[in-house]
Design a protein around this nucleic acid. Structure first.
Length: 460
RNA sequence: UCCCCGGUAGCUCAAUCGGCAGAGCGGGUGGCUGUUAACCACUAGGUUCGCGGUUCAAGUCCGUGCCGGGGAGCCA
C-alpha cells in the first residue's frame, strides 16, 4: 500500500484504508487505548491515530515515543472529537526508528531558538522550523515565478571567483594547497602552485557577471549562495547566504525601484495565499504584527524619498538620535527604523545617495554629487534590497575608478562591456534570508537558514 | 571588532543582605472510557560554565578564560 502524505489526507473527501508514515510528535495514553500524533513534514498539522491496546499494538506502542519514525496502517474515519476532521484507527504499527525518550532532545514544549540552534540537525522536526523550511521552499519558487512571468532569464554566476567585486565584502580565500606548504612558498611560487594559478575566492556577489548577461539577454537574474568573510555578529548577517540579483538592460533607477517593489509585493502576497497555515503559526507565536504587516506591504505603495529628503525628514523629526544626521553619511540603523516604522509605517525606498558612500559602478547623477543608488528598507529588518543604475559611460566609469584608486586591469572585461555596445542598465540584490525574516517574523537570520554559517560557527 | 547582558536539573527559569540548591515542563512508575501543550499521584535527576582568589561560609563578591545573546559598525 502506498503511503498518504498528511497534507493529502486532510483533503480527503471519504474515509477508507490508509497508510501514514512519519515521526511521532506526542502520545497520549488513556485506559485501553492511546492517541498518537504523527507529523510527516508535508504540512504543519499532525495526524491523530487512535491505537487500541491489543497485544500486538501495545507492543508497538512501547517504541512509539516522541521522535520515533513510524508507519501506521489503518482506517481513515471521521473524528468524533473536536480538533481534527479525520483520524486513523490503527490496525498495525511499524516502528522504523526509535527515539530514546531519555535522551531525545525535542520535547512536547516550546524550546528557545538558542537551544534549537545547538541541535540544528533535529530542529526541522519542530513546528516552527518545519514551517520555516516549507515557506523557504515556496518563496524560492515564487522568486522564479515572478521573474519568469516578466521574461527574465535565470542565469548562474560562478561561485568560485578570481575577482573581488569592489569589496562588497571580505572574501573567503579558496585554495587547494596545504597551509604549511603554502606558507613556505614565496608569493610568486605560491601563485603558480595555486590550482587556478592565481588567488581565488568565493563570490561576494554575482552582480558583475549578471551585468554581462543582461547586456546580452536583456533581463536576467541570479539566485545563489553568496559568501562574506565579514566579522559581523548580528541577527541579520550570515557568512553564507542566498541572494537574488536581477539585472535589466535599458532600465534606469525608476525601473529598478519598480521591479524591487513589485518583487517584494509579489512575495508578500504569495506567502499569504500559498503558506497560510504556516504564516498563521508565525503570526500566532512569533510576531503578532506579521499578517497585518504583510497585508500592508501588498496593499500600499512603498514610500520613495531621496537621501537628501531622508536627511530632512530625520532632522524635522525632532528626535535625538544617537548618531547625528549628516548629508554625506549613510543612514544608521536607528534612522532606517524611524523612517520605516514611525514616519511612513511601510517599506521605504531611499535613492540618490551621495557618491562618496556608494560603490564605483553606480551611475553618477547630473548633479555630479549623487549616484543613482537605492536601498529598499523594511520594518524591523532594515535594508532588504540594495541596488543602482549602473554607470554605462566608459569615461565616467574610468574616472570614478581612478578617483577610488581601483586598478583597471582586473576589471578589463567589465570595462569592455562599456566599450562595446554599452547600454543603460540597472539591478539590485535582495538578501533571500532577510526576505524570509520579513515574511515569517523570525527575528534572527540564523533561524531562517537550515545550517547557519556565522563567525566561529561551521557546525553540521 | 567595540559596548552591554547572561551561563543554576534534559528544557525554561527562580534562589532576598554571602547562610540547607528550588519550581514548572520533560523523563520513569502507577492511575484515568475520547485526548488535543491531556489530566491526577508518586519518583529519579545538580562539577550552579572552567580556573584562581576573598570569607567561618560563595550560585551570589573579586580576577581571568571560554561560551551564548542583545546593541553598534560592515551590508544583502
Amino acid at each position: 500500500m502506498q503511503r498518504t502524505r498528511i497534507r493529502n489526507m486532510l483533503a480527503e473527501e471519504t474515509g477508507g484504508p490508509i497508510l501514514l508514515k512519519g515521526w511521532v510528535r506526542t502520545r497520549r495514553d488513556a485506559k485501553g487505548f492511546s492517541f498518537l500524533e504523527i507529523n510527516d513534514g508535508s504540512c504543519l498539522a499532525n495526524a491523530q491515530a487512535v491505537v487500541d491496546h491489543t497485544p500486538e499494538l501495545s507492543a508497538a506502542l512501547e517504541g512509539a515515543t516522541t521522535g520515533a519514525a513510524v508507519a501506521v496502517e489503518g482506517e481513515l474515519v471521521a473524528s468524533p472529537a473536536a480538533g481534527q476532521k479525520w483520524e486513523v484507527r490503527a490496525k498495525s504499527i511499524l516502528i522504523y526508528g526509535c527515539a530514546d525518550p531519555e535522551t531525545f532532545p525535542l520535547q512536547k514544549k516550546r524550546h528557545s531558538d538558542e537551544f534549537l540552534r545547538g541541535i540544528a540537525h533535529l530542529r526541522p522536526r519542530t513546528n516552527k522550523y518545519g514551517a520555516m523550511l516549507r515557506v523557504r521552499s515556496e518563496m524560492a519558487l515564487a522568486v522564479h515565478e515572478f521573474f519568469r512571468a516578466r521574461g527574465f532569464f535565470y542565469v548562474h554566476a560562478p561561485i568560485l571567483t578570481g575577482s573581488d567585486c569592489e569589496g562588497a565584502g571580505e572574501m573567503f580565500r579558496v585554495s587547494n594547497l596545504e597551509a604549511e606548504q603554502a606558507a613556505r612558498l614565496s608569493p610568486e611560487l605560491r601563485e603558480a602552485a595555486e590550482f587556478f594559478g592565481r588567488p581565488a575566492g568565493l563570490t561576494v556577489s554575482g552582480q558583475l557577471e549578471a551585468e554581462l548577461m543582461a547586456l546580452a539577454l536583456g533581463d536576467v537574474y541570479t539566485f545563489g549562495p553568496t559568501f562574506r568573510a565579514e566579522n559581523s555578529n548580528t541577527p541579520k548577517h550570515a557568512a553564507e547566504f542566498w541572494m537574488v540579483e536581477p539585472e535589466m538592460a535599458f532600465a534606469n533607477l525608476a525601473d529598478d525601484m519598480d521591479t524591487a517593489e513589485a518583487l517584494v509585493k509579489h512575495l508578500a502576497g504569495h506567502v499569504l495565499t500559498h503558506c497560510a497555515e504556516d504564516v498563521a503559526l508565525f503570526g500566532k507565536y512569533v510576531d503578532p504584527t506579521l499578517i497585518p504587516t504583510l497585508e500592508g506591504i501588498v496593499a500600499q505603495p512603498f514610500a520613495r524619498i531621496t537621501h537628501a529628503q531622508a536627511i530632512a525628514e530625520l532632522r524635522a523629526s525632532g528626535r535625538a538620535f544617537e548618531f547625528p544626521v549628516h548629508e554625506t553619511s549613510d543612514l544608521q540603523t536607528e534612522h532606517e527604523r524611524y523612517l520605516c516604522e514611525e514616519r511612513y509605517k511601510r517599506p521605504v525606498i531611499v535613492y540618490d545617495y551621495p557618491k562618496e558612500i556608494k560603490a564605483f559602478y553606480m551611475r553618477l547623477n547630473d548633479d555630479g554629487k549623487t549616484v543613482a543608488a537605492m536601498d529598499l528598507l523594511v520594518p524591523r529588518i532594515g535594508e532588504l534590497c540594495g541596488g543602482s543604475q549602473r554607470e554605462e559611460r566608459l569615461d565616467v566609469l574610468a574616472r570614478r575608478m581612478t578617483e577610488l584608486d581601483l586598478p583597471e586591469e582586473p576589471y578589463a572585461w567589465y570595462l569592455d562591456t562599456r566599450r562595446y555596445g554599452s547600454a543603460p542598465h540597472a539591478g539590485f540584490g535582495m538578501g533571500f534570508e532577510r526576505l524570509l525574516m520579513l515574511v515569517t517574523g523570525i527575528a534572527n537570520i540564523r533561524d531562517v537558514i537550515p545550517f547557519p554559517r556565522t563567525p566561529g560557527h561551521l557546525e553540521f
